[in-house]
Amino acid sequence: MEDNIKKFLYVNRKAPYGTIYALEALEVVLIGAAFDQDVSLAFLDDGVFQLVKGQNTDGIGVKNFSPTFRALGDYEVTKFYVEKESLEERGLTADDLQEIMYEDEDDDYAEKPSIRLVNRAEMADMMAEQDVVLSF
């Protein structure tokens, strides 16, 4: 079975509510999690806005799906690569992002952060290591 595990990357480059891309990506990640692949998520360009904390959609009548990112650890989706340059260009730092943790089953269920800040070159390297890249 090990041989069948592929590296899947979901690339998020869109802000959360102006278009349907971000929500669709999240739904595909949740459905795809049933297939036990090696999943990573990339957040760059406007995609970093998806992870900003303090989102409240009461005034626009759509579901705030940002809390769902915190459930992805339960689905063994634990690698959120966030690009530093994209944050900086938008006046954001890591402190502006919500905390997303997962429990490492191989390390006595220790709580670990899912978000990994990477620079642009590291993001490019990570993208180049994938078997399948799904963009949203």
């Binding site: 480059r13 760059l44 642009r120 490019a124």
Partner: peptide
């Protein structure tokens, strides 16, 4: 859109 610029920023030599 930033797609082309972002693509140029992330493409590796040989791509």
């Amino acid at each position: 859109a930033s797609a082309l610029q972002s693509c140029l920023n992330h493409a590796k030599d040989g791509d």
